[in-house]
């Protein structure tokens, strides 16, 4: 919101010296906003500089198509696919958990819940996203994994993708529920009333009128949530294990890109070595995956939003 400068101030402004303090303050505030731009430039520069220096030693072809990720061993393999598959296994698995739950929660909140129920349920769901992710990791490791071993998959080891999938899925439910709820509520009452008027019941109104009307917002929330799941670090580090593993079996241990970066920084790999530079190459891959998803999500929200008046 910009306020038109009043004539009195404008006259003062014409005399620069009388308003030098004002200019100084404006410049300082601009620098504050500039910090965010510098942050982005810094991230991209660091990932590109160190990442590209990695790719002078390891070919990009080997990196993106290799199936053996053993940079810290004596027989080195620099194929990132096992880490990508681990990340995708958890990302897709978490989506399978969170998409139905988040969508149902959003529909319940916007179409069924009374305002009283809503005022309790919505904050309670949002608590799920406020819990530190290391706490989810603890819960997955000490509760969900033993539960799965006892009742579902007795062969499993102490680490498995499945329990990480469940907690990461639960963690991203509030993102979907909250954004989709907003999208559903933005569909005007008149559309619902028209549908009720021709005899549709609440299920039909919801699934054939309201849901399609809010689809762009809902899809945007899905992509944002999956992007968050891919970038999630601590729960997968604690629960999913530390073994790069090209598998689609959720009951095996896997390592994600984020968990690999953490494992290198926890170890004592010396700075400047090719082993250490892997974290920048992996970080660069991760950064671009999430960036592309976030941009698609933002574009869907802007481009396909149904504008109701």
């Amino acid at each position: 919101m910009s306020i038109e400068v009043n004539p009195l101030e404008r006259r003062y402004r014409q005399n620069f010296r009388s308003n030098i303090g004002g200019h100084l303050i404006g410049a300082i505030l601009f620098l504050c906003a500039g910090v965010t731009v510098v942050t982005t430039v810094g991230i991209v520069a660091i990932l590109l500089i160190e990442g590209l220096s990695f790719f002078t030693e390891v070919s990009a072809f080997e990196f993106f198509t290799g199936t053996k990720w053993t940079p810290l061993f004596t027989s080195k393999g620099f194929g990132v696919l096992p880490l990508v598959s681990g990340t995708l296994l958890i990302g897709i698995g978490a989506a399978l958990v969170a998409l139905p739950l988040g969508t149902l929660t959003a529909i319940y909140l916007s179409e069924y819940a009374s305002s009283r129920v809503r005022s309790i349920l919505k904050p309670s769901v949002e608590v799920l996203s406020g819990i530190p992710t290391v706490v989810y990791g603890y819960f997955a490791l000490t509760f969900i994994t033993p539960f799965i071993k006892d009742y579902i998959w007795p062969d499993a080891g102490p680490y498995m993708a499945m329990s990480a999938i469940i907690v990461v899925g639960i963690m991203i439910v509030p993102i979907i529920a909250s954004i989709s709820d907003d999208a559903l509520r933005a569909v005007p009452k008149e559309l619902r009333e028209a549908a009720y008027g021709v005899g549709a019941n609440r299920l039909e109104v919801t699934t054939r009128v309201v849901f399609p009307g809010a689809l762009s917002g809902i899809v945007a929330s899905y992509i944002l949530a999956i992007s968050r799941a891919i970038g999630e670090t601590m729960a997968v580090t604690v629960a999913a294990g530390a073994r790069p593993n090209l598998t689609a079996n959720p009951f095996e241990a896997v390592q994600t890109m984020t968990a690999y970066i953490v494992s290198v920084s926890l170890g004592d790999t010396p700075h400047g070595t090719i082993e250490f530079k892997t974290i920048f190459a992996v970080g660069l891959t991760l950064f671009f995956m999430t960036l592309v998803m976030n941009l698609i999500s933002a574009r869907i929200t802007r481009r396909f939003r149904e504008v109701y008046d």
């Binding site: 731009v37 984020t258 970066i261 974290i279 960036l291």
Partner: peptide, 19 residues
């Protein structure tokens, strides 16, 4: 600047760690 701020909010926290 505004677009950059909303993009920055979606960058995984581990990438900030690398920074």
């Amino acid at each position: 600047i505004q677009t950059n701020i909303s993009n920055l909010a979606g960058v995984p926290s581990i990438v900030f760690g690398i920074l």
